[in-house]
Write a protein that binds this DNA or RNA. Structure first.
Lengths: 218, 218
DNA sequence: CAATATTTTTAGGGACACCTAATTTTGCAT
DNA sequence: ATGCAAAATTAGGTGTCCCTAAAAATATTG
């Protein structure tokens, strides 16, 4: 069994590795977990000894198969708890992240299996993120980033890349919760900002940053 | 916000204080939490500084009002999670304690309020223990006959069914006046007689007849 | 490719929550 | 009331996870 801290590290490493496909640096983790780079070096060594990652001095870490499996189980727990909070406790999808960060560290396999069952074995969480099954298998997602979407084609918001509280709140405010439908009308070449039409025919302007943190599917 | 460890201490202190009504010793806590007495002394000082307990050197601790309130909220969470696991996740009542020990440390008031709501504001958990409300108010526990008491749980003598002079005299003689605290150690199946431990650690044997004429409450 | 900037590591330290061993302090029995 | 046993405390130490400051390794850039 791993400590909460170790679990947070391996989860962060896994997520960064998944999106870049490359070694994960100390600074990347330091930034993500809001801690000092020197502390990250310590933990990289520790995780290396535990064979959760391969650590090459001054060159960062890559998760091992074991590390990936551990990370996927934490993501599974996180996303199931989020689903539970939205489906059963009537939270809105932008309120659940922080508490799920705590709940994901509860150690009990049977608890999470029963929770999965209670929820009807969902494949995606309220943010549109895929929920790994108990063997670590991740449902296939066909989403693309909004920044890569074609113009004048209808899409459905399916999830977010960046799930900071401020971003989620912002999306909620402008009406871009998962499930919302939209169409790109116009893209500014110089900064990637775009004019987007919503379901109700209203038009909003999104920054390039926002557009490349929002997943949509056709 | 308190650490998991602090929460475990204040909960243990509260529970022992409730059943004995007296100062809680370092050894009592050391025993309950399975740690060394020297470590308990350290924590008694720390909890004293935080005004969760009144610590008198070499004389143990008593929870303050603040300490009691904190303890009651932890008990509330523990018992609501246990109820959730039994009611919604189909665990049996004897499987839920360990996991609830983890879940009780999740910090989110709104989560626990929503959970309470989901469960229909239950007053007692699957073990029959009362669930404090969000203000720390504990549902009144009605007395039960000593013959129905659980073993190894502290009770307070609250009254008698049969109030013949001879029975009351007998009770007085053996030290079981109302207000006395006791714990059932062992019950003989064939005649309902029981070995009972008193506050002062002395043990007495009660007949089945006596046990089914004496009311106790937790 | 040398100088500079950035990243990473090392060295040394602090808070937390525990430990053992030694020393009080307290409670009990004669 | 004194001597002994039990309980509590103090002193000193450990592992975890974090820190700062300085040194070393790596990357960038003119």
């Amino acid at each position: 069994m791993h400590t909460h801290t170790e679990e947070n590290y391996i989860k962060a490493i896994y997520r960064i590795f998944e999106s870049t496909g490359d070694s994960v640096s100390t600074t990347a983790i330091a930034e993500k977990l809001q801690i000092n780079a020197a502390s990250v070096t310590d933990m990289f060594k520790k995780l290396g000894q535990q064979k959760l990652v391969v650590y090459e001095k001054s060159r960062g870490v890559k998760p091992t198969d074991r590390g990936k499996k551990v990370a996927l189980q934490i993501l599974r727990k996180h996303r199931l708890w989020e689903t539970f909070m939205v489906e059963k406790l009537k939270f809105s999808w932008d309120e659940v992240h922080e508490v799920a960060e705590q709940l994901e560290h509860i150690h009990s396999e049977i608890l999470i299996e029963r929770l999965d069952q209670l929820l009807g074995f969902p494949k995606f969480d309220p943010h549109g993120d895929p929920i790994p099954d108990k063997n670590g298998k991740v449902p296939v997602v066909t989403s693309i980033l909004l920044s890569q979407a074609k113009t004048d084609v209808w899409y459905k918001v399916s999830g977010v890349e960046e799930n900071s509280d401020s971003f989620l709140k912002y999306l909620n405010k402008i009406g871009l919760a998962p499930g919302a439908t939209l169409k790109v009308k116009e893209v500014e070449e110089f900064d990637g900002s775009m004019k987007v039409q919503l379901n109700d025919k209203s038009e909003i302007v999104l920054s390039g940053v926002a557009a490349s943190n929002l997943y949509v599917l056709q």
